[in-house]
């Protein structure tokens, strides 16, 4: 038992390596927030493109659906490796694109951001779509009958309602995204997993990894509770005065 605790939960060891692991976790947080924000926006753009009306825009819808299908189907780790190994080899690109070092972050950070945004943009597009499709058709009709264009109706009437309905599932995806940032350790980004795993290889003690896990929980558990609250609130809206809201 003592050996078990020493291997995984050595408090003294954790204290000794706390600053190192925290530095790594700070990189994880930055990676999560930047990729998460970009994926939220990119997903919304994809979902909007997917809903464009008319025959003329069929190719746009088709390409969008193809994109979403492909990148939901490809493992994130593969994409990370493809991007990080591939882009620097493209000699025709200028160096600031081939080996981006923006804002003092290494290229591996930005390749991670790109891969995560591509993948999670596809996931989030599907979440937005479910929200858009849950808005009753009468809303679009009412907006169009008042003379609004499809774009105006989307922006002012459909999306505000759709986004409100999907905040909880989007947050769920964000939690998953946060955990998936650990995959960027494969291309040598010194985020929490890589830092703690290096400590493990040097010391044969796993407590630094446990500490990393605890840091994740400190962030993800409150987010999970927030998701529950949002879902409860959304359901509350529909049970209070149900017929009237249903009628909308």
């Amino acid at each position: 038992m003592e050996e078990f605790l020493k291997q995984f939960f050595d408090v003294g060891f954790m204290v000794d390596h706390f600053d190192e692991v925290l530095d790594g976790f700070w990189v994880t947080v930055q990676l999560s927030v930047i990729s998460g924000a970009l994926a939220l926006v990119w997903g919304l753009i994809l979902a909007t493109l997917r809903q464009l009306p008319g025959k003329a825009l069929l190719p746009v819808r088709f390409l969008t659906i193809a994109y979403i299908d492909v990148f939901r189907g490809v493992p994130l780790l593969l994409l990370i490796l493809i991007i990080a190994g591939g882009i620097p080899a493209l000699d025709f690109l200028p160096e600031w694109l081939r080996l981006p070092q923006w804002f003092g972050k290494p290229d591996s950070f930005w390749f991670g951001v790109l891969a995560i945004t591509i993948t999670y943009g596809a996931y989030m597009a599907e979440v937005y779509r479910s929200g858009i499709e849950s808005v009753p058709g009468g809303q679009m009709e009412a907006a169009r009958s008042l003379g609004m264009s499809h774009g105006q109706a989307m922006r002012s009437v459909i999306l505000p309602q759709a986004v409100r309905k999907v905040i909880a599932p989007l947050l769920n995806d964000f939690i998953a995204l946060t955990k998936d940032t650990t995959l960027v350790s494969f291309i040598a980004l010194n985020e929490v997993t890589l830092v703690a795993s290096d400590i493990q290889s040097e010391t044969f003690n796993s407590s630094a990894l446990t500490l990393g896990a605890i840091m994740f929980l400190v962030v993800t558990l409150p987010l999970a509770r927030l998701v529950d609250k949002l879902i409860a609130r959304e359901q509350g809206r529909f049970t209070r005065g149900a017929p009237r809201v249903e009628a909308l």
Binding site: P136, E141, A142, A143, G147, S156, L248
Partner: peptide, 22 residues
Amino acid sequence: QFNLFPHKSALQNVTLAQEKVL
């Protein structure tokens, strides 16, 4: 089914298209 915009107040329902369209 009325089709009022549920995320807008009564007045905003009446003003939205006036501003956007007219």
